[in-house]
Structures are given as C-alpha cells and as structure tokens.
C-alpha cells in the first residue's frame, strides 16, 4: 500500500478543527450526563418501587438501543410531528449541535447512572450505619458519606465510560456535524482517499484516548491513594 503522505499532512489542520468540536461535545455531554446521573442513581437505590422504576425505564432504553438509533430518532424522528416543530423547544431541537449534545448527554447519563448505582450499593453498610448512629440522615448522609465513597468506587468504571463516549461521539458526523469523523468524511469527499484520511483521524482518536487513559490513571492514583500499600 502506498500512502499519499502529502494529502495526509494537508488534511491535518481541518481534522484538528474537527477534533475541537469532538472534544467540546464529549466534555459538555460528560458534565451534563454526570450531573444528571447523581439524582437518578439515588432514585435507583430508593426503597420506593415507583421511584425506582422511572430511572430504570430511562437507563433501560438508552443502554438497550444503539446510539445511532437514538440520534436519528431525536434528530430526524421528532421533526415528523407538527407539535414538536411548533413547540418552544424547536429552536433547540432543530440544531444538529444541540441534538447531538442532548442525545449524548442522555446516553452517557444512563450509563453513568448505572455505574453510580452499583457504586452506591457497594458502599460498605457499616459506614452508613455508623453515620446514622452519629445522627446523620438524608442529604447530609449522601453528601458526606455515601457519594464521596461511591465516586471513588465508581472511578475506574467511569474512566472507561469517558473513553466509550469519546469513541461514540464519532456518530455526530451522521447528523451533519463536522466533528473529527465528519471532517474526515468531508475531506474524503474531495480527495477520494479514505484510507489515508481515516488513518490520520484514527491516529488523533488514539492520541486522545492515550491522553485520557493516562490522565485518568494519575487521577485514580491521587484519589485512591489511601488504598495503596505504603512504600516507606
């Protein structure tokens, strides 16, 4: 295989421009999805079966269907209805950018909810009981004891979720957005060199994953320091 190195190099500025959009979408979706997941995870472990069912239906749908379907359902599907097109939400739903951001948020929010639920349930009973004995309850108990502990337990799984979200964001290209993959496909439409351009795009994704994985490893080491064997 002979690669066209010149074209690969020329495509780099545009692909990096697409990378910025990819990063922006992923970062915003992760923050919003993370915020969404906290109350939902708390509902998921509630003792009230009705309260439990609602977030379960949500996570079930978003974890049980492909992201591509969710994206198309939201972007092209909702527009089928006059009601939606005339609602106050239309100015937001009509934008591909917002559609992608909302769907990514709901998607990563669903996975994060389940990760966090598992972590909350893994918080040792003794700690919760001890806090109760001290007179803590409700919000304080969650804020001071359960959530801080759960975050640490969830950290490794959440690290994986970030990587998966980064990879899944490539689907933004299917609804007209010029993210890294979208930019690559647009450049290919001009150069007809899919292998070369996809290789450059792939290298950028790999570099991003590498940075994320190592950044997360540092964070984990810091946050979970107390679990490590003492060296001195």
């Amino acid at each position: 295989m002979n690669l066209e190195w010149g074209v690969m190099l020329e495509s780099l500025p545009r692909l990096l421009q697409g990378t910025l959009l990819t990063l922006e979408l992923v970062a915003l979706a992760l923050v919003a999805g993370g915020l969404l997941s906290v109350p939902l995870a708390m509902l998921r472990v509630s003792s009230n079966p009705v309260l439990r069912a609602l977030p379960l239906a949500y996570t079930f749908f978003f974890r049980g269907t492909p992201l591509l379907v969710q994206l198309f359902l939201f972007y092209y599907g909702l527009a089928q209805f006059e009601v939606v097109r005339e609602s106050i939400f239309w100015p937001i739903v009509r934008e591909a950018y917002w559609s992608a951001l909302i769907v990514f948020t709901l998607n990563t929010g669903a996975y994060t909810t389940e990760i966090l639920r598992g972590a909350i349930q893994a918080v040792p009973h003794g700690e919760v009981e001890a806090a109760r004995a001290m007179g803590m309850s409700g919000g304080t108990l969650y804020r001071r004891i359960v959530l801080p502990r759960a975050y640490r337990i969830a950290l490794p799984a959440y690290g994986n979720e970030i990587i998966l979200m980064l990879k899944a964001s490539a689907l933004a290209s299917t609804i007209t957005l010029l993210d890294l993959t979208g930019m690559a496909r647009t450049v290919i439409a001009k150069t007809y060199l899919p292998v070369e351009i996809f290789l450059v795009a792939g290298a950028i994704y790999l570099a991003l994953t590498f940075l994320l994985v190592n950044g997360f490893r540092l964070l984990e080491r810091r946050v979970l320091r107390f679990q490590q064997p003492r060296t001195a």
């Binding site: 092209y76 527009a79 097109r85 239309w90 009509r94 934008e95 591909a96 299917t174 007209t176 647009t186």
Partner: peptide, 16 residues
C-alpha cells in the same frame, strides 16, 4: 451537508 438527499429534504421540510 447531508449524507443523503432524502435527509436534506426531511430537514428542509422540518425548517432546519
């Protein structure tokens, strides 16, 4: 820019 002409029609119809 759309993947298909059909999707472009859908978005023209939707007012995007």
């Amino acid at each position: 820019l759309y993947d298909t002409q059909e999707n472009a029609y859908l978005d023209l119809g939707a007012g995007r």
